[in-house]
């Protein structure tokens, strides 16, 4: 059995953490071939070749693959699919855009956000915002899977897989890229950070979110936000942690002014240690927190930043 793994490549660079976690999840399924696709992807291919457990790297470079537009990327994957029993990717927004399209083109079901591999046909995945875990056995000849990266450790480095170029089927001409609005930040990436500090509606404003950011910077942490905070305009959408945002499982998760709605818990409850700071002692977040502090966040957070 053989696995084709779509690497996460952004503007020519490999997202190593997400890709290495997917490699680790996939390697029990067979030999892993990593596909790096983009307008430029050679450098990403070189990085992917070093991931432990990768047996081969395919590099596809074409302007049509430049911004991971689903139509061109899915056509590329389908053109390569014949040799593989499993076609997998880390469950990023890019892969969630592409992989169901691949599955439908192959007339198979997709397995989204897989959190556990039972055997080559059987997988675990969360449903109902993580309120239930379903084990499903696929009857399809090929399995198309996205892996929820927060539940897998990253494969190490030290590999030296062969890198091979493949050609792309060309531009179907259905969609074109206009622009990206990406916030530049020196902070670690949210889904791979060791520590995450998140703010909720209780923070009250975009201006006051600075106290969350100050604590995060003191800890070398990424900044997250609840859906309520993002909907209220306190924080940008890419900070959202939860069922429909990012799923994180850091060593330490600090939830500030977050009540703990089910959809938020779905995105962070696998964190190793959870700290909650909230003035409402009845807040459901305290039911999952290892350490809870019932306090006014505007006093407690600056004090914590100072004392750490």
């Amino acid at each position: 059995m053989a696995v084709l793994l779509l690497a996460e490549v952004t503007d020519g660079a490999l997202a190593l953490d997400a890709t290495a976690k997917a490699v680790n999840a996939a390697k029990t399924l067979g030999d892993v071939t990593v596909l790096c696709a983009g307008a430029s992807a050679a450098a990403a291919g070189e990085s992917a070749a070093k991931i432990d457990g990768v047996s081969k790297v395919l590099v596809a470079e074409d302007p049509a693959l430049g911004h991971r537009l689903a139509e061109a990327t899915a056509a590329l994957i389908v053109s390569l699919a014949g040799d593989y029993s499993h076609i997998v990717a880390p469950a990023t927004t890019d892969a969630k855009n592409v992989m169901p399209r691949v599955a439908a083109l192959l007339d198979v079901m997709v397995l989204s956000d897989v959190t556990g591999v039972v055997d080559a046909d059987t997988f675990e995945r969360p449903i109902y915002a993580g309120n239930a875990i379903q084990t499903v056995k696929s009857k399809d000849a090929k399995k198309v899977i996205t892996f929820r990266t927060s539940t897998f450790d990253a494969a190490g480095e030290g590999g030296s897989a062969a890198v091979e170029a493949v050609s792309a089927p060309g531009d179907p001409g259905l969609s074109e890229w206009v622009e990206d609005k990406v916030a530049a930040s020196d902070r670690p990436e949210l889904t791979s950070a060791k520590i995450v500090v998140s703010g909720g509606r209780g923070v009250g404003s975009e201006e006051d979110f600075k106290i969350i950011e100050a604590l995060a910077d003191k800890l070398g942490a990424a900044v997250g936000a609840s859906r309520a905070a993002v909907d209220s305009g306190f924080a940008p959408n890419d900070w959202q942690v939860g069922q429909t945002g990012k799923v994180v499982a850091p060593e330490l998760y600090v939830a500030v002014g977050i009540s703990g709605a089910i959809q938020h818990l779905a995105g962070m409850k696998d964190s190793k240690i959870i700290v909650a700071i909230n003035k409402d002692e009845e807040a459901p977040i305290f039911q999952v927190a290892d350490f809870g502090l019932v306090a006014d966040l505007f006093q407690a957070v600056p004090e914590l930043t100072e004392k750490l």
Partner: peptide, 30 residues
Amino acid sequence: PRLEIVKTTEPAARQAGEIVADVDTLVAKL
């Protein structure tokens, strides 16, 4: 269906921890 449901289970529950008295205690615990 292409996917046969083998079983559906509750996720592992997380135990509530302790409420700490103040920031100093929290820092000490961490």
